[in-house]
Design a protein around this nucleic acid. Structure first.
Lengths: 167, 167
DNA sequence: AGAAACTTTCAATAACTATTGAAAGTTACG
DNA sequence: CGTAACTTTCAATAGTTATTGAAAGTTTCT
């Protein structure tokens, strides 16, 4: 397989994966591009490589900055701004986990806690409801604690511990 | 808070969470509804509770069956079919993990393996590319192994092990 | 201050995804 | 078999999200 072809395939596949991680397709593609680029790229270069418009590039670059997984960079002597990706996959995964925890897990935990306060009126419906909510709440809180551990963990420590688990 | 209000809130919140887990909104809402229902529900009941059309209900019920997180159930003497959700949150999480592994992680691993075969032509671009692909591949494969452990794990064993990790 | 180089915004529109509901299909019972 | 009870399909449409590109905004240099 040739390099350019491989690169396109990776960007495509990364686009899909990123999408299921809560990024959007273009965001994930820009990210993939920056991951494999040996040098920081300018907006122009990103536009050209992915054949996307200026506005689209700008919006998605901003979103990636917002997620904290790429960074802006000024090259002395150049007016343009350049962007580079965090290349450490571990740091990246951690950042994504952090964002998703904030955006997804925290809201549902909040609702589960509120909804857990409901007065049971003695009906079968409300009893079943309480039971399910309680279980979900416990599960969500445990997951949250686990995610927190992951987010704060050292890479080698984490994989070693996991390795022990797997035996 | 009143029960009906609480139920609506939960279905709403679950809808959002499910969405970020790869289900779609209606799918996740039907699932939430079946989770809190003390008895299996018919298509009619689901349609009424969520105010959705027959076609929509049917399609999303099928998708949930497909994911293996609800089941069809015939009540003797009744022509109608009823549906009930797996109520064990652990089993549910495991099933979702299994599906996502199949739908998302496996395809990217396949691509990473292929793309890892690329001939490096000695250019900086292709060297950087190789390096990144290799790291991604290692990470993805480790994650896959971890997911597999999770999917096969016993609930109490899993949380105990995790608890030890967190200390 | 003016002009060039660049970035950001946003209304229009394209692309995609979800939903409806009526029609076609299936099943099961008299 | 016929028909009532139910399920499935699918073309039309509504709703949502992504993308464009030109205009407005900003920065930096002379």
């Amino acid at each position: 397989m040739k390099y350019t072809e491989a690169k396109e395939q990776l960007i495509q596949a990364w686009g899909n994966l990123g999408y299921s991680w809560g990024l959007n397709k273009t965001m994930a593609q820009i990210h993939a591009l920056l991951m494999v680029a040996p040098k920081p790229l300018s907006t122009e270069e990103i536009m050209a490589e992915l054949s996307i418009s200026r506005g689209n590039a700008n919006m998605n670059i901003r979103a990636l900055l917002d997620w904290g997984i790429i960074s802006r960079l000024s090259v002395p002597g150049e007016r343009k701004e350049f962007f580079k990706s965090e290349k450490d996959v571990w740091a990246l995964a951690r950042q994504v986990a952090k964002e998703r925890r904030k955006r997804e897990l925290e809201p549902i935990i909040k609702v589960l806690r509120e909804v857990n306060q409901v007065q049971t009126d003695g009906s079968e419906h409300s009893k079943e409801f309480k039971k399910v909510v309680k279980e979900l709440k416990i599960f969500a809180e445990k997951s949250d604690a686990l995610l927190e551990t992951f987010i704060k963990a050292e890479e080698s420590w984490f994989w070693n511990t996991v390795l022990k688990m797997m035996k």
